[in-house]
């Protein structure tokens, strides 16, 4: 299988795959969104309850603030848990802290590789790569990649998929 070793990661020995984490941009984006939305919620709750129900009720604004702290830590741990490895014949994706999930997708099984990037993601210079196989249950998405890396991954996966392509 020459195609597999064409790229640098192809020669990785099978037992210990070389894992790649996600770039920091994704964490930054998610934390910013968290702070913006929960911050707005805290202000809205505080102002509305303070005006209409009395200042004591405004203490409920602390709930979204606590949410920010909890989410800040949670997002960090979740971001750390995401990683992927390109092996000679398949792609590994591992993610999740409390609900852990690890997916193995053989290159030959990929029907479609998609690179998507929403407006917010684009602003932060991020893109996600999604793999589709004939089974819809295959949930193989790598979010928050650098667009150049996402395109490299897409091209490499497509090339490998063609080389190892198999029918259903």
């Amino acid at each position: 299988m020459e195609t597999g070793s064409a790229a640098d990661t192809g020669t990785t020995p099978e037992p210990e795959p070389r894992w790649t984490g996600l770039p920091r941009g994704l964490l930054r984006m998610r934390r910013l969104l968290l702070v913006v939305w929960l911050g707005l919620a805290a202000v809205a709750v505080g102002v509305l309850l303070g005006l209409f129900a009395g200042p004591a009720w405004a203490a409920f604004a602390l709930l979204p603030l606590a949410g920010i702290v909890w989410g800040w830590v949670g997002l960090g741990r979740n971001w750390l848990s995401w990683r992927y490895a390109e092996r000679a014949d398949d792609l590994l994706i591992s993610r999740g802290v409390l609900w852990r999930e690890e997916t193995v997708v053989p290159y030959g099984r990929m029907q479609l590789v998609e690179v998507t990037s929403g407006p917010v993601e684009r602003h932060f210079g991020l893109a996600s790569v999604q793999l589709h196989t004939a089974a819809a249950a295959t949930d193989a998405t790598i979010p928050g990649l650098d667009p150049a890396e996402a395109e490299r991954l897409r091209d490499r996966l497509t090339a490998l998929g063609e080389a190892r392509s198999a029918g259903l």
Binding site: L98, W99, R100, E101, E102, T103, V104, V105, P106, R109, T133, A134, A135, A137, T138, D139, A140, L168
Partner: peptide, 11 residues
């Protein structure tokens, strides 16, 4: 015939 293999584990 295997398309993908997944491992999942809740808390």
């Amino acid at each position: 015939k295997v398309q993908s293999v997944r491992l999942s584990q809740g808390p």
